[in-house]
Design a binder for these strands. Sequence first.
DNA 1: TTCCGGGTGT
DNA 2: ACACCCGGAA
Length: 364
Amino acid sequence: MKRLTEFGQLEDPSFSAAVIDWQKSHGRHALPWQNTRDAYRIWLSEIMLQQTQVAAVLSYYARFLERFPTLHDLAAAPSEDVMAQWSGLGYYTRARNLHACAKRVVEEYGGVFPSEPALLADLPGIGRSTAAAISAFSSGTRAAILDGNVKRVFARVFGIDEFPGVKAVEEGLWRRADALLPAEGIEAYTQGLMDLGATLCTRSKPDCARCPLQDRCVAYATGRTAELPVRKPKKTIPEKQAALLVVIEGGQVLLEQRAQSGIWGGLMSLPELDGHAVRGALAIDAVAPLAGAFGEVEAISALLPLVHVFTHYRLHIAPFQVSLSRRADLPAPYLWWDLARIDSAPLPAPVKKLLLDLSAPSLF
DNA sequence: TTCCGGGTGT
DNA sequence: ACACCCGGAA
């Protein structure tokens, strides 16, 4: 039964009981870093298991311990040896931090890992979750882990339908993780959460039929296991602005040959002024100096702005029509192009459309 | 090809 | 708050 407390409604001893029971009967018990309180071996496994699955870690773990049987061996080893042992596991900052951490534990703690999670988390390569795991397994400290597996389990069980990477959501997850800790049996509970996420509550095709939390799982009850946890939102596309000048004189339009690299590389386009999309007098002032370089300006008027979407950003285009009373002599990359054959110009689609729209409806 | 991830650097 | 690492999975 849930217990309402003055601290919130998060405590629920039956949650940890279900995890612990399941871990004892169906969890993993024979991994090389289990059934020991040796902080060195536990720490090493936790670092290797960051971003890396058990199957990939097994052989590295064995070889690493063969080469560096104790923390002192590791701390005293040349860094090339450490890196060589790590080679192939990926995420090599883990190896550099591992070595630095070994040296610091020897220096600052006489070669004995501290048991306090806060002290562990101060060491290189050890964050809050890894500190809690090391502390729980090596000294039975009651501390909450919250790695990717646990986030996934919580997001599904509690039906959290916001991206867990958002700070406030993650804080809420940590509060739940703390509140759900068992009074007894932190080792089996911590291992159980890890095992659950790794073996049943997997990212795709979770095995809900075997899950000890099925009867309390919001995602299961609502058929949303495939949608939870909410995926990381695609980062918002940057917005860029550019002013384009439509300089028309004598039935010709002024074009500019673009550089080979960058957007619209090698195509022709209209003379462009980056970072100017605002309409109105201010924008016309900003555009006037460029227009002036093309001849004696008679008038400048803003045309309807348009938006062009690229894969990596959104371009807000503010076109301005410029009429000249006299053309300046223009060197490359500028050239005049007959409006009558604008259809055959190598122009980007939105620019061509702009020019066609401009010349087509002109009913003379 | 895209998604994912714990800790760190910015 | 975000990019990055770099390898596996989908």
